[in-house]
């Protein structure tokens, strides 16, 4: 009962946020620069939440997320630009192909643990970038021209779907199984949980949404180049998740918003931008090493509705 009510509060709140922003954009109160920043924030939230599923919930340290972003971006760009098919279809295709890439990488590499998995996924991210760099069909190093199709509406719908699906997944029995893999793999195995299966599922699901984000990303910047998807991009996404608190969905959302805003407004000071950005990170890690939210969720603060739970809500 409570859960159903909480869900409707969430839906209504989402519609209100969407409506207000859309009105502001339509009314010209929000200039295109700010509108674009909002879209960018949305894309970053999708990326952060999709990686949160892999790292925060399932505990698999993957640092090649930009690779899946790149797959989604290029595939969706090919579909709209080369085949002239509609944008929603391109987004979906980008997600599906990224998920397939996730399966392809996940099945062999998820047998690895810790550092080794990190190295393998990092390597994958780089391989993807270099593959696109060498395919002339997609423009090689000079990149690929893409029409601007991403709007606030598309971004918001994708964001809504991502958060809803990942929240429900986390709260389901499958989500609990994923968390048990994070907590203790041997015990999870002994409980009869197919740990490899859940690792791969979480990885593929995370890659799917990263691919969707890629589609939005590609159609927001007029041009995509392999250089956009280097390992620094992967680290950016990783930072959202770690800064927000491993295991907290709302934490990664908040961190994504915060860091996107910080880095956007620091664009006017290119010399000091990276310094300030780093100082922010160092300060957070010094004073809140468990991340902004720890493993808690925003909804825990209100007590009533147990929202997306990344493990527990009883303080650490």
């Amino acid at each position: 009962m409570k859960k159903v009510k909480g869900f409707w509060i969430y839906v209504v709140l989402s519609v209100v946020i969407y409506g207000v922003v859309q009105l502001l954009i339509n009314g010209g109160i929000l200039n295109p620069f700010y509108a674009n920043t909002l879209i960018f924030i949305g894309i970053n939230i999708i990326l952060a939440v999709s990686l949160h599923l892999v790292i925060g919930i399932t505990g698999q340290f993957s640092i090649g997320h930009a690779g899946f972003l790149a797959v989604g971006a290029y595939i969706s760009a090919i579909i709209t630009m080369k085949f002239q098919l509609p944008f929603p279809l391109a987004l979906l295709a980008g997600g599906i192909v990224a998920a397939l890439a996730g399966l392809l990488v996940g099945i062999p590499s998820l047998r690895l643990k810790g550092d080794y998995l990190a190295i393998a996924t990092l390597g994958f991210g780089e391989i993807i970038r270099i593959v696109f760099l060498n395919i002339d069909y997609v423009g090689g190093a000079s990149g690929m021209q893409v029409t601007h199709l991403t709007t606030w509406t598309y971004t918001f719908i994708c964001l809504f779907i991502t958060i809803t699906v990942i929240t429900n997944f986390t709260n389901s029995r499958h989500g609990r199984a994923c968390i048990s893999v994070r907590e203790n793999e041997i015990a999870a195995d002994a409980m009869g949980i197919n740990t490899t299966y859940y690792k791969v599922v979480a990885f593929a699901l995370g890659s799917f949404f990263a691919g969707i984000a890629g589609g939005l990303f590609a159609h927001n910047f007029y041009i995509i180049q392999p250089g956009n998807f280097g390992f620094l991009k992967s680290f950016d996404i990783l930072i959202f998740v770690v800064l927000g608190g491993l295991g907290s969905l709302s934490g990664s959302v908040i961190a994504a918003i915060l860091l996107t805003v910080v880095s956007t407004f620091l664009q006017d000071y290119p010399e000091t931008r990276m310094i300030i950005y780093s100082v922010v990170l160092v300060l957070v890690m010094l004073y809140r090493p468990q991340g902004l939210m720890g493993t808690r969720e925003v909804t825990d603060l209100f007590g009533k509705w147990k929202g997306p739970k990344g493990g527990n809500s009883y303080g650490k």
């Binding site: 968390i179 409980m191 527990n312």
Partner: peptide, 30 residues
């Protein structure tokens, strides 16, 4: 596990960040 053999691993290995109830729930996972 499905066939009816349950293993309590050495060193306990409880899911530390989950509540007692959630741990038990996972035991009945299958």
């Amino acid at each position: 596990v499905k066939a009816g053999i349950s293993h309590v691993p050495e060193g306990r290995r409880v899911f530390a960040n989950m509540t007692v109830e959630e741990n038990l729930q996972l035991g009945a996972y299958l």
